[in-house]
Design a protein around this nucleic acid. Structure first.
Lengths: 196, 196
DNA sequence: ATGTGATGTCTACAAGCGTAGACTTGGAGG
DNA sequence: CCTCCAAGTCTACGCTTGTAGACATCACAT
């Protein structure tokens, strides 16, 4: 058991949740073991099941916890005039290499090969990210444009953090921002019209 | 053993490779089991190790096989004037939902949570995709632009096929092409200059 | 036809997984 | 001080995994 804490149910629960978040972000749903998660929280494996019922329920709790945290799509960002620039800056910052406090998107990507985990992830992405972004986009094809935007965000996380493509993982953040901003601006642009 | 084939080493090897490709594309490196792969090829699990040495070596062989196949980055595509439109069209087609013959990119994404698999994947993406695309890009920051382009390709695969985001998975292909083409065009554009 | 080596199968092992139930220990209320 | 329930640990089961070695079987060359 962790030295600093003794028999505090709420604290133990938080410790397990935090450890699980780290573990899932590092190894994905399948890769992270219950014993490993428990050790990271300073308890035994059985406490995970005592507090969360099962590994699957723990994963769902982690995703819910992550979703409750800050994201690119905060209301003040969505209403800002320079949304494209903000999105680019935040995305580049979030996906910087090393032991970044990874956000939930990455956890879901790592876990997407597990069918159950992918289901949970799709549901949460849909509800939390896609719906919000779609609603904020003026013009035609808002849902599709929001989808492409999320795909770009996902792709940057994949390439910078999961694969670790050197050209992206080691790139100058300023350069990446300059590259991404016009891309975002194009998809976000207000007078988007479906012309054909 | 498969009914149609009898004691043909080359055919058995191909069958295992093909089955492994399907299995890895469906479940990722960790998710796909050797027994499952073997069954898909109509043999026993031990044949996998006999022909490929280990699961890890099998995975490397699958990636190599996939890389040898067709991709977006064929020379005639890279030289074409309408590269952006071609990339958009091919990407949308490749990532269409259902039991598509998935390309290697997706296998690597599914397997990225395994450290060894991610290493193999990064190496191959770097060598096969990123280097080729970088060389084909005129203007400044070719490596970074190529990286962002690959990230978008990866993101579309993730969102359409892994997560299955409805807005993308169920979208009209024509619409997606129209959305992606200007994005690609912007990153591919010849007179790209790093201005600051 | 008859060895003989390649081809494929069977059984099994050691390790790790998620999970369950019985057990022990701590800390607060009487 | 003593009790008692929550908090936490221990041991273990059943399963799956990748892999190893011994065994069987088919096809071809002599």
């Amino acid at each position: 058991m962790a030295a600093g804490r003794k028999r505090d149910a709420a604290a133990t629960r938080s410790a397990i949740l935090a450890s699980a978040r780290r573990a899932f972000a590092r190894s994905g749903y399948d890769g992270a073991g219950v014993r490993e998660i428990a050790e990271g929280a300073g308890v035994t494996a059985m406490m995970v099941n005592r507090y969360f019922g099962s590994k699957e329920r723990l994963f769902a709790a982690v995703i819910a916890d992550v979703m409750a945290g800050p994201s690119i799509l905060t209301p003040e960002n969505l209403d800002a005039a320079d949304l494209a620039a903000r999105m680019a800056a935040i995305l580049v910052d979030i996906t910087k290499a090393g032991d970044t406090p990874l956000d939930g998107f990455l956890i879901m990507l790592y876990s997407a090969s597990s069918e159950r985990a992918a289901d949970i992830g799709r549901e949460e992405i849909e509800r939390h990210y896609h719906r919000t972004l779609t609603a904020a986009l003026p013009g035609d094809l808002a849902a599709e444009r929001a989808g492409v935007l999320l795909a770009i965000v996902a792709g940057m996380q994949v390439m910078r953090q999961m694969i670790g493509l050197p050209a992206l993982a080691g790139a100058d953040p300023e350069v990446l921002r300059k590259l991404l901003e016009p891309v975002f601006a194009q998809l976000l642009s207000k007078p988007f019209q479906h012309k054909d």
